[in-house]
Design a protein around this nucleic acid. Sequence first.
DNA 1: ATGACTAAACCTTTTAGA
Length: 259
Amino acid sequence: MKIATWNVNSLTVRLPQVLDWLQANPVDVLGLQELKMTDDKFPFEALRQAGYHAHAFGQKTYNGVALLTRTPVANVVRNIPGFSDDMARVISADVGDAGDVRVIAGYFPNGQEPGSDKFEYKMSWLKGLRDWVRTELAAHPKLVLMGDYNITFDDADVWDPVGMEGQIHCTEEERYHLRALIALGLHDAYRLFAHPEKSYSWWDYRDFAFRRNRGLRIDHILVSDALKPLVSSCEIDKAPRSNERPSDHAPVVVELSGL
DNA sequence: ATGACTAAACCTTTTAGA
């Protein structure tokens, strides 16, 4: 089973690229973030013709997430139960032939800058997510928590760790929450394998950042203890970042054997 | 240079992203 996450930064603009990517990478599950559209605009029919079931949770202009799957899913949940939020950031479902893999796909808050109201919202959102994921893990041992986290784990995820020290995506407060998720019994699938140094999942549109590989690794796939032994690969696909009108994020793909 | 691109909307200017 292959599971992927991709922040497309407007599905309206990126739909042709998503369809092209799925044709070349027929993953079983794809989580999308930053749809930037309401559900009545969501391209259910185009995705159905591409062979995917789709569940969307969108809103106007900002945020918005979706889960695309080759086979039908069950128990779709939108946002974080127990955490009141007027933004569309999370969608989860039971996937796989046995329906025993819980996939949670999220668009984590950006946070703007430390000390801002948006940063405080990011901190409370992360706490709300963790409290819910703890109970989800107890109910679903086989669990994947993936998406645009908007947090780097450490300096290895940052093109300029000195210049970005203490800046948004790189603060100790954000990384504390990321480690607290790991402490629930989750593992960063990407770091289960050796990868080249300076591997990132996002590059600024400005200043030729992609060509200069000035990026951040902020899109992650975390797998539970029960799934960790099944992970056979995890890769960032940089190819779509070279498209015309690309998303600023690249897809991340994990392969689970025996599912 | 609180800049550089990109996207959406209240659309020739602002807000947000990361």
